[in-house]
Amino acid sequence: MAAVATPVRRTRRTGRGIFGIMFAPVTLLIVLFLAPMLIMVQMSVVRFPPNVASGYVLEHYRTVLTDPINLKIWWTTLYIGSTAMAIMLAIAMPLAYYMVFKAGKWELFILLALVLADELAPVVKIYAWQSILGREGILNWLIPGSPIAWLLFSRFAVIVTLASTYITYTTIPIYAAMKAIDFSMIEAAVDLGAGWWTQARKILIPLAAPGIFIAMILVYIPMLTDFVTADIVGGTGSYMMGQRVRDLILSGGDWGSGAALNFVMLVVSVVASVFAYWLARLNKIDR
């Protein structure tokens, strides 16, 4: 009897529901994400010392973009980040391949291990590397002869530690992309005479490209802003952008330059992300 009226009411409710559901996340996004960013942008253009009457200038941007020290730090950061990225890709590609096509029942186990490795607090991992690479560390204890000094407090240490920190975020998108590859394509390539390098170059890498680009976006950005790793295992030659921003703000009290530098890095990251996204789209294939 009452069944006739119900459907009408239900339709109305759905119409209102979309806004109801979206209201909370949109508000959170504005309050917690956009607002701090706007404050940062405002900070980067306020004349120093900041107060109500100081007014706005682009001075800070000119400083951070022309300061030769910043340029040098930028190159160091890119060098460390890209080397770590290259190492991670060299590990993640074969690992993802193994997981998807060869691991069988171990696939889930490896996936779980990767996720668990990421669950470990980053600082704990960094200190673990310190005890491995240190002068009295495990590695120097294993290698005969006088202890190798450059293992710790060096670019090498930062690269190794960063690579181990972000390996999960590199592997999983590539794993997901490879999961969509039909194994008969690989077998067809083998059947047509392709060795492992041709298989990788002509089939695997092009087809996993969307995953590779996503991995690079996911990993490059946090790596470029990381300062804890370089603080704990880095040396004088591994001073990174994240440390520079932190030091400008906390040690120098130069909020303007710190915010400006941060905003420049944000723009670079966004541009790089859009480019990577565009590349990924370009490589997306109708299957």
Partner: peptide, 13 residues
């Protein structure tokens, strides 16, 4: 010898 696969295994890209 060359094989023709059930799912063809054509390279989509």
């Amino acid at each position: 010898v060359n094989m023709v696969f059930q799912a063809y295994g054509l390279f989509p890209h």
